[in-house]
Design a protein around this nucleic acid. Structure first.
Lengths: 249, 249
DNA sequence: CGAATGCTTGACTGCGGTCAAACGATGTGG
DNA sequence: CCACATCGTTTGACCGCAGTCAAGCATTCG
C-alpha cells in the first residue's frame, strides 16, 4: 500500500480512511488530496439497526462511513434475511451520479456508525472532472471492487460449504480491515454477531456457531469479544477456496 | 412495452432485438434509432462451449448477442462451477467505457451464438453523448437491470429452497424472453441443460431434475424438447418468492 | 434482581448431495 | 443396417451437511 504524503492534515478523522483507500488505488495529486481532506462537513451518528441511507429521502446524498460497520440487507417475502454486503469505515454509500442497484440498496447500521456527507466531493467532480483525473479513477475502482465482492459472494453462496464461507468471509474482513489500518498482528475487530454473519452467508445462526467452534478447535481462528485472531493464514486460505481437504485434487 | 415506430428498417435482424429492449426502457429519437439500426457489422458465430469475449483479447470490443444463449461461468479452485448470469439475445457483453467486473467477466456460449460488434455504437456515444441522450439513458438502464439480477441471484442462492430457485429462474427467463418477443402463450424456448441450470442455481444436477419432475407432477411447469410451458403463473410466482406453503406466514 | 442479547450445545430431522445404473435420442463408423 | 459412443434425462438408494427445535449459559443493562 502506498503512503499518504505527510504534512497533509486531514480535518476530519474519517476522511483519512478514504484517502488511504484511494491512495492504495491511485496516486493522487495535491489538489485531489486537498479536496478529499476538506470533507469535514456535519458528521452524523446512526444507531444500530437504523437505516443510514433512507431511500425515501428524495435525494439520498452520498456519505462516507467514518466509523462502525453497516450492511445492505434484503428481506424476502417469507421473512428470511440476506445481506448483499458489509460496509466498513472508508466505504461510500448512496447515489453518486447514476443510481446503481447495489450502491443505492439501503444500508443499515450494525454498530453505532458515524458518516459524513461527501456531496461536496461529488459535486466538484461532476462540475470539473478534468481537474481530478486520479480521484475519478480511484473512486471508480472502489465501485468496481465492491461489485467484484458481490461476484465473490455469489460464488460463496452458490458452491462453498459452511466452513469455506466462514473462512472466506473472515479473510475478506481481515483484508479490508488491513486496508484501513485496523489490523494488528493477525487480529482485527469484527463487530458482527453470529446472527448477522449467518444472514450474510446463507446459513443458520446455529451452524455458524458450530463452524466457528470448529475453526477454534482446529486452532485456525479465534473470535473473542468481537476481536478475530487468525492463527494460520495459510491453512485458512487453503480451506476458504479449495475444496474440503478430505478429497484430494 | 412500447412499440418501435414502423417504417424503420433494421438492416440486421439482431439489432431489432436491441431496439426493442431499449425502447421498452426509454423512447428513442429518430437519430438514436438510426444509430442502433445501422449496426450491421460483421456478425460472428460462436460454437457452444467457446468463449464469446476472450479476456486475453487485448481490447474486448463490446458485442451484441443476436441469437443463442450464453452464460458467465466461474470455476472454483476445487472444480465446481457457478454461473454469475445467463445471457439472452439482445444482451450486451464486453467492455464499454469502464471495465466493470460483471460486464467484463468472460461469457461462454451455451448454444450456437451469433454476435455483432457494437463498437461503432459506443464510439459514437463516447464522441458525442449529447446527441443521444435517451440512448445513453436506456443503455445505462440495461446495465442497472443486469446488476439488479445479480442481487436477485444472491438472494436466490442465499435463502431460497431448491424449488424456489428453479421456479424463480424459470419466471425470470420467461420475463426476459417476453421482452424480446420469444414467448408464446406461456411457453418459451430454454436451451439450458439441467446441468447448466444446476451450475446457475447452486444445486446438483440430480436435484434439479427432481425439482423439475415435481413441478411437472404438480402441473405447474412442463419442460420438453427445450421448450418451457408455464401452466400456472400465479402459483409458480407464489412458490418462487414466498416460503414453502407448508408453514403459513 | 429480572430482562434482553448473544453464544453454546445437544438431539433430531430433512433437504439436497453423491453414487450408480438405466433409458432415450442422436450421431458415427464399420 | 447394426454396433457403439455420447449426451442429456430419469430414477433409486444411501448419506451427510446443515436446519430446526430446545435448553442452558454468560454478559450486560435497566
Amino acid at each position: 500500500m502506498q503512503r499518504i504524503p505527510t504534512g497533509i492534515a486531514t480535518r476530519a478523522i474519517g476522511t483519512e480512511l478514504l484517502l488511504r483507500r484511494l491512495y492504495a488505488l491511485k496516486t493522487l495529486n495535491p489538489d485531489e488530496v486537498e479536496l478529499v481532506a476538506s470533507l469535514d462537513s456535519k458528521p452524523r451518528r446512526h444507531e444500530p439497526g437504523t437505516a443510514i441511507c433512507p431511500k425515501s429521502d428524495g435525494s439520498p446524498h452520498p456519505r462516507l462511513i467514518t466509523s462502525g460497520w453497516a450492511c445492505r440487507p434484503r428481506i424476502t417475502a417469507d421473512g428470511r434475511r440476506q445481506m448483499l454486503g458489509i460496509l466498513l469505515p472508508g466505504d461510500l454509500i448512496g447515489d453518486r451520479g447514476e443510481a446503481r442497484p447495489l450502491t443505492t440498496s439501503p444500508a443499515v447500521a450494525l454498530t453505532p456508525v458515524r458518516t459524513v456527507s461527501v456531496a461536496k466531493l461529488f459535486d466538484a467532480l461532476a462540475a470539473t472532472p478534468q481537474n481530478y483525473p486520479n480521484l475519478v479513477a480511484a473512486l471508480n475502482k472502489m465501485d468496481l471492487i465492491e461489485e467484484a465482492r458481490l461476484l465473490d459472494l455469489v460464488v460463496r453462496l452458490g458452491c462453498h460449504t459452511a466452513i469455506q464461507r466462514v473462512a472466506g468471509s473472515l479473510l475478506e474482513f481481515y483484508q479490508r480491515s488491513s486496508f484501513i489500518g485496523f489490523t494488528h498482528e493477525g487480529t482485527f475487530p469484527m463487530p458482527l454477531t453470529q446472527e448477522k454473519l449467518s444472514d450474510l452467508l446463507g446459513l443458520s445462526l446455529v451452524h455458524v456457531n458450530r463452524v466457528i467452534s470448529q475453526l477454534r478447535r482446529e486452532k485456525l481462528v479465534e473470535i473473542r469479544c468481537g476481536i478475530v485472531a487468525i492463527h494460520d493464514f495459510a491453512r485458512l486460505s487453503l480451506l476458504a477456496d479449495r475444496a474440503d481437504p478430505s478429497r484430494p485434487n
